[in-house]
Write a protein that binds this DNA or RNA. Structure first.
Lengths: 208, 208, 208, 208
DNA sequence: AATGAATGAGCGTTCATTCAT
DNA sequence: CATGAATGAACGCTCATTCAT
């Protein structure tokens, strides 16, 4: 009786919150921020509309939750890639992960990228820049890999890489062509292989 | 009574249509498709709301008009670039034009690219793919330049180029950093210069 | 064709606006601000809900319109009373007008007074003090009459008079007893008669 | 097992009920009936929302509790005043108590008066007249004092007095001017002093 | 007795589109 | 051709109340 909150109820609640977050991420990606209604998300998560507000005070809160869901996916991916010793292999693994998602990308674009586009159209200063934060984290991770490889201008290289990803996702989506990502992914891998350190010193992993 | 429409009235009507198209292109770019109301466009064009429907039957028609406005801008640009003899110079001119637009891009992204993202989120098969058509035309133009240069895989090169543009526009927008476009533009120019024909035969302009 | 706006349409529109204002004043008085829905007012005015917003941008705008309706009624009353030569007669006329409204007052209280009570409960600084403005105008009018009568402390006397009215309206309403107003009104008339100028000089109308 | 309820639990329960009643009275006075949510009261009383329903079956029950809280305050005040020998002093004490509350009155009006206004707006026959009952009791008490003073029309005098209080509270609130109550309170005291018994017989306290 | 969670009806507001003139 | 006015479906959000434990 030390804990007055019933564990079962709490577990159920956490489950609902999880479901809402996950479905929000999915539906917002598919239908976009503006065309997704709270009822859409509630239905997808099998939660009554009125109850959504117990977990998320506003629609914006749900959007933020969806964004952090994507952010968490990214963390998981980079975390897995860091098990690879060679930073170049990590970057290649990143590109391969992108290409693996080509069907989804052709259907709905990059979740974070399209979210960024939609949120930026808001005149109010609410979530305008939130998606940018997630993108920044990916760029920073890539920069650390390029730096570990001893490349010149690692920051610009990182931007080039992520920029290429956003561009090819957008085009694959606009042209409804998943294989566009396969072809561009292959070119990106070639590009990675072609990159040389400024001097001839051997690569070293700077703990990235 | 053969010609019941007075020329002056027709001229005025054409003027209104022009203004509506131009303002639709501008406002839709700035505020996005879903957050722009017909009243917004009507107000910007100084046309009474009720009157908009005389020129455009639906909001979608206005979106199409905005899209063709962007398409026309693109035609104008490529037309001007084609006055240059060297296809490589044309492509460089394209990149420079992109970089020149960096402030706008950082504020609102690429007009066609962000439109493509928003329109794709529609489940109905109405305008989902329309923005892709405009993009396709740009890619095709670039492909003709690469082909004229005798490059291998001109189609993929063209996609790479446009993809790089869409990516850097999106990132400049998401990160609110116009100079990101300057830096990436410079890298693109270097990349263009580094491209070699497969053999040593001289460039030739394939009527682009 | 000089006037592109159809007069008939404008007349109809003005009519609707008038109806909405009048019904808003009535329904808000009867049901109170918080319990009155826009649908209530729309129904009373026989206007479709969606159309209300063509005339009033928010519910608060309708409340303001109702308030100015009450204010206009007050102006009309005081205007009529000013046709009387003796300021004391004017004040007596005011009291008689109050008593005449006793049935309404017993049912719903003073329109402005109850509005003031409800609006004050708002924490936001929107319409909190708007009803006070109308009340101030009545007090000021009464003060001018007392001053014209050469009374000492005309400002306090005016507050006493209006205060008595608000108090008896509230009690008649709370106790559901219209005759309470008759009895208190009679006492107020006696009180008016008992008031003496500080000196013995004759009354003079200072154009109130 | 005759007494299954532990005394400690009962004490705790009574405490919660007390806190809920007190906070209901306070918050309802400040924010009004319609703008106060159960969650507001629960939070103020530091009681979980769900638990409120154990003590009060409905929101209306809480409103009734708040009303009886105000009624109890009134009893306490009149009880204290009855320790004074002279009924006129008791009435003067009442007025002074009102003036002492001028800051609160200017902020939120008279608790019972504003409650009466709000409850009357209800069309359903639930609590419409409940606040009137509390007011009636105050009027009756005042009437007993006037009668004890041997005044003519003690009932009307009592209504006049309470009416003056309600009126000045409402005006002080609407005009956000606490000092209005000081000035009107002084006038009320003068008025009380000016009142004469119909004949010259001495005052007598009729057990009030 | 206690409480976090659930529920659904209802509200103010927006907006693309249509209509009457 | 032009336009003020009309319309209604839908959305985000609130809240008193109930429920399961």
């Amino acid at each position: 009786m030390t804990d007055s909150v019933k564990p079962a109820a709490r577990a159920r609640a956490q489950d609902k919150r999880r479901r809402l977050t996950r479905e929000a991420a999915r539906v917002l990606h598919e239908k976009g921020v503006e065309r997704t209604t709270l009822a859409d998300i509630a239905r997808a998560a099998d939660v009554p509309v009125g109850n959504v507000y117990y977990y998320f005070k506003t629609k914006d809160d749900l959007i933020l939750a969806a964004l952090s869901e994507h952010s968490a996916h990214l963390d998981e991916l980079t975390g897995r890639l860091e098990q690879l010793a060679d930073p170049r292999d990590r970057l290649k693994g990143l590109i391969e992960a992108w290409v693996d998602q080509r069907e989804i990308a052709a259907l709905h674009g990059c979740p974070t990228g399209t979210l960024a586009v939609e949120l930026d159209k808001r005149a109010d200063g609410t979530l305008d820049a939130e998606a940018g934060v997630v993108m920044r984290r990916l760029i920073d991770w890539a920069e650390r890999q390029f730096r570990a490889l001893g490349m010149a201008d690692p920051a610009d290289l990182a931007v080039s890489l992520v920029s290429a990803y956003q561009g090819m996702s957008l085009l694959a989506n606009a042209l409804r062509d998943p294989e566009l990502m396969s072809r561009q992914g292959a070119r990106l891998l070639d590009w990675l292989d072609s990159l040389q350190k400024p001097d001839g010193s051997p690569d070293s992993d700077g703990q990235a």
